[in-house]
Design a protein around this nucleic acid. Sequence first.
DNA 1: CTCTTACTTGCAGACCGTTTGCATTTACCA
DNA 2: TGGTAAATGCAAACGGTCTGCAAGTAAGAG
Lengths: 138, 138
Amino acid sequence: METAITKSLKAGGKKLTKARKAILAVLEGNTLPVTVAEVHAGLVKARVGVDLVTVYRNLAMLQELGLVNAVGFHEGQMRYEVVHGRAHHHHIQCRSCGKIVDLMLCPLKKLTKLIEEQTRFSVDGHALEFFGWCPQCR
Amino acid sequence: METAITKSLKAGGKKLTKARKAILAVLEGNTLPVTVAEVHAGLVKARVGVDLVTVYRNLAMLQELGLVNAVGFHEGQMRYEVVHGRAHHHHIQCRSCGKIVDLMLCPLKKLTKLIEEQTRFSVDGHALEFFGWCPQCR
DNA sequence: CTCTTACTTGCAGACCGTTTGCATTTACCA
DNA sequence: TGGTAAATGCAAACGGTCTGCAAGTAAGAG
């Protein structure tokens, strides 16, 4: 099967290994961004023997190919989510229980041009996360 | 001298120690957010003997009192900046050289209410950082 | 189909930012 | 000035992430 993802892998000179398939399957089974440990736990549960290091290496690779997004909530670890087929969006995390919810919005498109004029940087991305208390914890 | 900061410390039951004064002095000498290691290096340069652990503990404490802001660029470490007297703002960092520039803007005030309606979270903060290439690196 | 080679993986261990425990020191108030 | 809670330094642990290297494997060439 030639999915968009396998196509990108091939284009990047990457092989479609058993580990890679399993990691992608775990990622695609989660709507919300997951930690490396969570991906690894998902592999264990699926009875796929893949080393934690391999998960790190593959997530880094998938991120470089633009197939996966890294999201950080200043938890001391990163989270990852698949990009394919999803609109650009952001998240909110509960300060109490850590729950994460998708926010299908982004107010920053217009701002980029303004920032480029002000700073003379060429802007190519942004990180935006919200924090608060979820209905259960507030 | 009774500055706004010393007042806040006293209100929090905190003592104004030599280490604390020195740490605050380093922070106030920097407009841009600095790492813990940079604060510590600043103390060494100022010939003030303060342990790295003490820097960590004080920055955490200052953050809890709301005197200091934590900023993360997904570098594997946090950065800190003093809040006092500065307007709420964000930053952009160069992906190549790591240079950081202040952005004296925030487009998110209106959005908060919308998010609260959509998610039923009570929103109490956000992290917004931009990335790109600075004039020297682009 | 098998050969070949570049890409991948697992394992062990290093690395680095951050945190903790505990004994000692210090700021501050009565 | 003396007593006490808070703060510090040191050593050591911790957790997430990365690296080196030898062994394993996907995938195109023939």
